[in-house]
Simulated scan of single mutants.
Amino acid sequence: MYKFLAVCGFGVGSSLVLKMSIEKAAKERGVECEVENMDLSSAKGTNADAVFTSQELGDELKTATKSPVYPIQRYMDKEEVGQALDDFLG
């Protein structure tokens, strides 16, 4: 089972929307995962298989975590989130 993070500045609101999109995209692909939404500073200290976040926070997270970081522009766009998930799954 994979562990994914949905990250936004404060860990509420947009990261919750992103979390739901990741869960939907994963379910469509038959991928078992646990998705946590959290704020930027918490994400820096959390181990995960992959991190999904905004373009703005992506660069900061790439230097602060060992996990692959996938910037998402439209959190509600299941296609864009699904593409990032496909990239992760390789």
Rank of each mutant, 00 (worst) to 15 (best):
A64S: 15
A84S: 15
V69K: 02
N37V: 09
D87Y: 04
S14R: 12
S14W: 05
G30S: 11
D39R: 11
T46Y: 11
E28N: 13
D59N: 10
G13F: 06
L40Q: 09
A25F: 05
Y70V: 00
G58K: 00
A48I: 04
I22G: 03
F4A: 01
K19V: 00
Y70P: 00
D49N: 14
A6M: 06
K62S: 13
S41R: 13
D59A: 15
A64Y: 05
Q83K: 15
L40H: 08
L40A: 15
V51G: 00
T65S: 04
E28G: 11
V35A: 01
F4D: 00
Q55S: 08
Q55P: 02
S21W: 06
F88E: 06
Y75S: 02
S54V: 03
E32N: 15
A26E: 10
V12T: 12
E79C: 00
L57G: 05
V69C: 04
L61N: 11
E56W: 06
M38T: 10
A26P: 14
Y70H: 01
G90L: 10
G11Y: 12
E23N: 15
M76E: 06
T46V: 13
L40R: 12
A25R: 03
P68T: 04
N37C: 14
L89M: 15
D86F: 08
L18K: 00
V31H: 10
Y75V: 06
Y2M: 10
E23V: 12
G11P: 12
V51N: 02
K19E: 10
L16V: 14
S67V: 02
Y75P: 01
M1T: 14
F88I: 05
V51W: 02
M1L: 10
D59W: 10
